[in-house]
Design a protein around this nucleic acid. Structure first.
Lengths: 156, 156
DNA sequence: TAAGACCTTGGAGTGCACTCCAGGCAAGTG
DNA sequence: CACTTGCCTGGAGTGCACTCCAAGGTCTTA
């Protein structure tokens, strides 16, 4: 292992940075990351990163003179945002749409805003749903209350 | 259409009833529902209902003398609960495990409780995740603020 | 300079949760 | 009694989001 342990893999770091234009350098001064470094940073697999690029979810990644990917801080910021979108449950196809809008320039900002607002509403609804399931879960867990080891028929 | 409109399909009714043993009759006095009636009640498709039975997620559905399924109020209650579990994001395989525990009798209550508690923790974590994405979404939407129609470069 | 870890590609495979199909039986209606 | 509608079955197909493979080129460390 040469590189992988530079950041712990299980905890996705993903500060709630958001980008497209503002790039704030990472720990070391570099602005060039191999795919496995990015995998470690983002918690996504290298497979997934290549796949994201294939389907148009990454806006052009630089290459070394030998053809290997060299991700920039901008790319990292973008991926952090994509990671957040993924957590919302937004379909990958919609994320691609969003990426295309970004690439198309400033005039698509209303559409992007609309897309994010729609996503926001989905998230709010999903949270409500989940909170509703918590009610049921708690009720049900309550009916099992005290059943820690051998229940042995609580009533009668 | 013979039956379908007896309940509106889009809103899943699924009162937060929970069962296994307590069955409280539905609107009309009957306790026999065809698969399409149940599909209308639960919002699940008839396909899904048959599939749930195949994989062991339904605890034996009665049949008419000609072999057609006749769901009972108990079944409906169970399905309402299954629907809630599905909303939690619990994998179907785990729901089957839960169903098997129920079938195995009272002595499995500690395991059932543990399963639901684990699910509860997943739900709580997922809610936190989603709330975190809301923060990012709101920030991002904020940067697009006022971009209702033509943005025309807000700064400079 | 050689081993071993790393990177490349297109395309195939995986797991989940449905979803549909073909072929056939059954029940109600003009 | 034909016709339409609904139900049955096993098995195949779908869509999503990865995930892996084979075959080969590259980079680093001893």
């Amino acid at each position: 292992m040469t590189v992988v342990q530079m950041v712990n893999q299980e905890t996705v770091p993903a500060a709630l940075c958001v980008a497209e234009d503002e790039t704030h350098p990472r720990p070391d001064g570099r602005d060039q990351y191999t795919i496995s470094e990015v995998a470690a940073f983002t918690g996504m697999s290298a497979h997934t990163l290549r796949w994201y690029e294939r389907i148009g979810l990454m806006p052009h990644v630089d290459r070394s003179n030998t053809g290997q990917r060299r991700f920039s801080n901008r790319d990292l910021d973008w991926l952090a945002f994509v990671g957040k979108l993924r957590l919302t449950g937004m379909p990958v196809a919609d994320m691609v749409t969003y990426a295309e809008l970004v690439k198309a320039g400033e005039r698509t900002e209303p559409q992007r805003k609309a897309l994010l607002e729609a996503t926001r509403m989905d998230v709010v609804q999903r949270i409500a749903e989940l909170q509703d399931t918590l009610t049921v879960l708690d009720y049900k867990i309550g009916t099992y209350a005290g059943a820690e080891r051998a229940p042995e028929r609580t009533g009668a």
